[in-house]
Simulated scan of single mutants.
Amino acid sequence: DGLPPKTRRRIVLAMLAAFAALALYTFGKAVHDIGRNDGSRMVTDHAGQVELSLKPEVSDNFTPYYNNMYGTDEE
């Protein structure tokens, strides 16, 4: 609040200009670097067979939630 409005506006505009310049530089460099990887191509290969986990056996220690979800017929 100690700065005059004109000075405050100049400081804000200078900060905005610096941000805009850095943002444009970053964007421009990213666009320029797209596809530049020293001429090497990305290697794509088959992932191979994926091992899936087996469904656990039903035992006294394991009762799936969905078996008892709606109650029993004995009610």
Rank of each mutant, 00 (worst) to 15 (best):
D1K: 09
G2E: 12
L3E: 09
L3N: 10
P4V: 05
P4R: 10
P5F: 03
P5D: 11
R8A: 13
R8P: 00
R8F: 03
R9A: 15
R9I: 07
R10V: 01
I11H: 05
V12F: 03
L13K: 07
A14N: 06
A14E: 07
A14H: 11
A14L: 06
M15G: 04
M15F: 02
M15V: 03
L16C: 08
L16Q: 15
A17K: 07
A18V: 03
A18G: 05
F19N: 00
F19H: 01
A20Q: 00
L22I: 07
A23P: 00
A23K: 00
L24W: 03
L24G: 08
Y25A: 15
F27N: 13
F27A: 15
G28L: 12
K29R: 13
A30H: 04
V31K: 10
H32Q: 14
H32C: 11
D33T: 01
G35T: 01
R36A: 06
R36K: 11
N37K: 09
N37C: 03
N37I: 04
D38C: 04
G39A: 03
M42F: 14
V43C: 01
T44I: 15
D45G: 11
A47V: 06
A47E: 09
V50T: 13
E51N: 10
E51H: 14
E51I: 13
L52G: 01
L52R: 09
E57Y: 10
V58A: 11
V58Y: 14
S59M: 05
S59H: 02
D60M: 09
D60S: 12
N61L: 07
N61R: 00
F62S: 04
F62W: 12
T63I: 06
P64W: 00
Y65L: 10
Y66H: 07
N68P: 05
N68S: 14
Y70K: 08
Y70N: 05
G71D: 06
T72P: 00
D73L: 14
E74K: 11
E75K: 12
